[in-house]
């Protein structure tokens, strides 16, 4: 189980959706960190085997955390959440 260091973090809450499910994040979270804290570790399916993949480097190098936002593939570990964002699991580039 993952979670947050402090519940009263001091930041505003930001709501977005991942695969249609509502997720509540803190302003300034990356998509990857908001999803990790919400127990959603699998972010994309791998290119040929279709295996679940998630964060590896958490600093923009590995591209394992790709998700789709507004039709664009983005690295979820480098993309800060916005209210109302519609995030879908990433697939092959």
């Amino acid at each position: 189980m993952s979670g947050r260091l402090t519940d009263a973090d001091g930041r505003e809450r930001v709501e977005f959706t991942f695969e249609g499910d509502a997720v509540s994040a803190y302003a300034g979270d990356t998509i990857a960190m908001a999803l990790w804290a919400a127990q959603a570790a699998a972010l994309r399916r791998s290119s040929s085997a279709g295996e679940p993949r998630g964060v590896l480097c958490n600093m923009g190098v590995c591209y394992e955390c790709l998700v789709t936002v507004d039709g664009h593939n983005v690295r979820s570990c480098m993309t800060v959440v916005r209210a109302g964002m519609v995030v879908e699991r990433g697939g092959r580039q």
Partner: peptide
């Protein structure tokens, strides 16, 4: 490649950068 297996640096970023507790 299993979700939940990350780099050591990734864990530091989680905790110190975002206040996310990576697991138990």
């Amino acid at each position: 490649t299993l979700p939940g297996v990350v780099t050591a640096g990734a864990l530091q970023v989680m905790v110190r950068g975002f206040g996310v507790v990576p697991g138990q």
